[in-house]
Nucleic acid binder design. Sequence first.
DNA 1: GTGAGTTCGAATCTCACCGTTCCGACCAAA
DNA 2: TTTGGTCGGAACGGTGAGATTCGAACTCAC
Lengths: 138, 138
Amino acid sequence: MDYQDHKDKQFPQLPQKRYFAIGEVSILCKVKPHVLRYWEQEFPNLSPNTRRGNRRYYQQEEILLIRKIRELLYDEGYTIQGAKQKLQNKQFVKDVTSQEQIQKAQAELPLGDTDLTNAEPIANLKNQLQDILSILKK
Amino acid sequence: MDYQDHKDKQFPQLPQKRYFAIGEVSILCKVKPHVLRYWEQEFPNLSPNTRRGNRRYYQQEEILLIRKIRELLYDEGYTIQGAKQKLQNKQFVKDVTSQEQIQKAQAELPLGDTDLTNAEPIANLKNQLQDILSILKK
DNA sequence: GTGAGTTCGAATCTCACCGTTCCGACCAAA
DNA sequence: TTTGGTCGGAACGGTGAGATTCGAACTCAC
């Protein structure tokens, strides 16, 4: 059973059905069942339907979320805290439309992966850039 | 001693000197000395600190790297492995990430992984930084 | 030079994170 | 009715990421 091989980044294709049992999800996402239960404690938005006698019935959305979490944890090297935070930020970003400065910076900045969606103070970034410039001026 | 408060994302500005002792770096980066020594084992590119008689003398670039690592670990929630991988990916983006994932990431995050700090000629980078600064000065 | 303060490496310790294992009991479909 | 998947909870484990401690070596202002 090598469905947990971290290097194989291909997931099986999702069958066209509405609900999936935890064992199926385990195979489809390459995450063991007990880990799925554990993640459920850690990621509040990952709560499968459990009506019908305490069993989990996952929907397609949830499978995609699990795959995303898996990528963050196993491939990209986030901690669970970090992954949680990142997923929340993403939702946050969707909602916010008024931060013109940030959007502008995002549009124009060719700067690495300094994630301005975290709303990190611009001033701090500026200091860093000045430090960098002072090095480059040598 | 609150220089380790994770929520304070402001770093002190770098004094204009060439070499820094580990204690200074500790304050400038808000990372304790023993942690700096520990990171040195974990991040190979953080080893080139010139020693004179077994002492670490950090240069400005190393300080920036330490700050970057600190951000990845403490703010963004990467593991050390993840941070290491992310720093290395900057040199080998093509090998590690599939084209699909790159496109997906870019669709989600306008800033993407376009970290030019290692890949582009210094002069080019300098121009970009000046563009950035002019944006920030508005 | 002297003494106070830094820094050294290595060893040891801690503790939270991220699962793993085990469990008897429950459920569902063949 | 059997068989195999699933349940939750508690106990356990390993290792990641520092923290602490140590005596010795170094630095530098005086």
